[in-house]
Design a protein around this nucleic acid. Sequence first.
DNA 1: CCAAAGATGCGCT
DNA 2: GCGCATCTTTGGG
Length: 217
Amino acid sequence: MLRPDFFDQDARELAPALLGVVLRRRVGALWLAAAIVETEAYLRSERASHSSLGRTPSREPMFMPAGTLYLYHSRGGPSLNLSARGEGDAVLIKAGLPWVDERSGPRSLEAMHRLNPKRDGSARPERRLCSGQSLLCRALDLRVAEWSGRTFDPEAFYAEAGPRPQSILQTRRLGIPAGRDEHLPYRFVHGEHADAATENPLRKRGWVEGVEYRVSG
DNA sequence: CCAAAGATGCGCT
DNA sequence: GCGCATCTTTGGG
């Protein structure tokens, strides 16, 4: 399990640092797992963040110590965030890649598919099973009422070191309305797993490296 | 209490 | 790329 002080850094540093981290979630006797492949940083000081809209009970976890889980609902699905060092700052976990290893075997992957099928009931392609903030929460059975305001729990849901990216893609956040600091380059994508992100910057028509996105590492 | 607003997801073109 | 279904939360916009 990652040490609590890992989360105690600026959201713009924590967001890329979380790429490759493996989320482990126990459902019954099975441990489900996904590696984080896409994150977004949100600061209280800019207008896209929920914390910038003011303090309410549901937003309170954003203001709690670094590492506090903040889950909220939007358009019918939950989203997972981690509070960062600055009060009101947080990182949105935007996409993951189903992670299969000794701890989480084929039966765990099947359980994730059952938790998050397509609307017609059929299975999603594996790389698309957690490729969205709500898709990830569904595949890991993470609900707002159960987890928001809590911290990781080694018995039920926690994070540990995983496949570090050799390169990181940095670009603008998705779904931010005009006038809400939509230009800030606070989205980070795992360079080797960009196809599992909600949107792969490398496949965007007309996007040029160094202009619409940057590559580091 | 209820209309409106989402840090979405999907299917169709 | 674009329109629409979806559905919980919010606060009176």
